[in-house]
Design a protein around this nucleic acid. Structure first.
Lengths: 212, 212
DNA sequence: TGACAGCACGAACGATCGTACTATTTTTAA
DNA sequence: TTAAAAATAGTACGATCGTTCGTGCTGTCA
């Protein structure tokens, strides 16, 4: 069976599929992609298990589709608003700020979808882990690219290690999301902002303002 | 039934219980505390489901016992070797180093137990989440205490924000563990060490060596 | 030696999991 | 308008989940 090519062929099918994936992202952010159960998902959407199941053909395909949906959602929610900032340091800070806001606003019940799912699948080899790892890498690479842009514009020191910093900022943002979910103390977002700002300041000329 | 007070009354029972929890920590680090199944755990230990079950009385009690065992294990594996460093900055760096080594050596299949379990339970209210949150808080507080000691010895600037830094270092270490599990590239441990070292250097007098 | 406590076992429970089949309704295209 | 196609529902399956129950085994102490 080739379930990977199951795709909706009508507007209605498309609409249903989108509704399913929106709920799936929300549930998975809190319960994980394994805790995301076909029965409970169907019930939450007032449809039958088998009707929902037919959209994907297997649970793994549902999980993969959810990861792709989350990737698109993240781009829409974080990258698009973030990229409105002026190229260079402002844009970098704008993207990071959008990401922290997205975590703090709890757009999903469980906070950031990828933070939850990455931890869940990081030691489960398979297509789902590969998809999650690819999405994370794509995101960190985007951050590194923004850092290099700021460097080329002379706003950051030429020696600023882009990959290192991108990884750091991602770790701090994920850490803020996790700590907030766990302890429910929003001060961690202040910690994260300050940590990133201080780190960036170390690579700017004295007096340059880091807009974060 | 009061399953919480189920405790072994013979040396043999004690021994079995320890063997169960050792396996449980290992499995849960990779599959999570929900993925940790009584059946699979029993099979891995060559015992019957019911025999194993009787040691705890419920799955939640098994999960709680596993968290407590992991707390003790972490103290033994990270805090004890770390505290051998001389009081102050060396001890702080020694503890952080022990923690990064423990993650990199993959003492458990899935890396750090608490990183995995914190992400899994951070949006599942209940006694297990509470236990995990308490353990994490205890650990970050320990780091903050070490930072304050270094500050009081004059090795770190008086303005070094202990809670902020403790949170940062924990985020970076957890981030290194996660990224390593996900991408299997050990360079992230170098990133984490460098990030923490640079951050500490910003609060030391020029020329002071940060032993990390 | 006998009684008893603690440990472990096998069998079975109801519930729920993912999945497979068939039937019915709804949408689309001619 | 009608026939094909797609979407959804209904039902049932084998497997596995956590849990319960009754029963032995084993070592200890009177």
């Amino acid at each position: 069976m080739n379930a990977a090519v199951l795709e909706p062929r009508t507007r209605k099918g498309q609409h249903t599929r989108e509704a399913i994936l929106a709920r799936a992202m929300d549930i998975a952010s809190a319960e994980g992609l394994e805790g995301l159960t076909i029965g409970s998902l169907a019930e939450a959407l007032d449809m039958s298990k088998s009707g929902l199941f037919a959209h994907f053909g297997s649970k793994e395909e549902l999980q993969l589709a959810t990861v792709q949906a989350a990737r698109a959602f993240f781009a829409q929610e974080v990258m698009v608003p973030g990229l409105r900032g002026r190229k260079g340091l402002p844009r970098l800070c704008s993207v990071i700020s959008a990401w922290l806001d997205y975590a703090e606003k709890e757009v999903f019940r469980g906070g950031c979808f990828f933070t939850a799912v990455a931890a869940e699948f990081d030691s489960r080899p398979g297509p789902v882990k590969d998809a999650v790892a690819a999405a994370m890498k794509e995101w960190v690479d985007s951050l590194a690219r923004l850092i290099r842009e700021a460097r080329e514009l002379g706003e950051l020191d030429r020696r600023a290690p882009a990959d290192q910093l991108a990884w750091e900022f991602n770790s701090l943002a994920m850490g803020a999301n996790s700590a907030y979910q766990l302890q429910r103390d929003a001060v961690v977002f202040t910690y994260a902002r300050r940590a990133i700002r201080d780190r960036l300041k170390a690579f700017t000329a004295p007096g340059v303002r880091v807009p974060l």
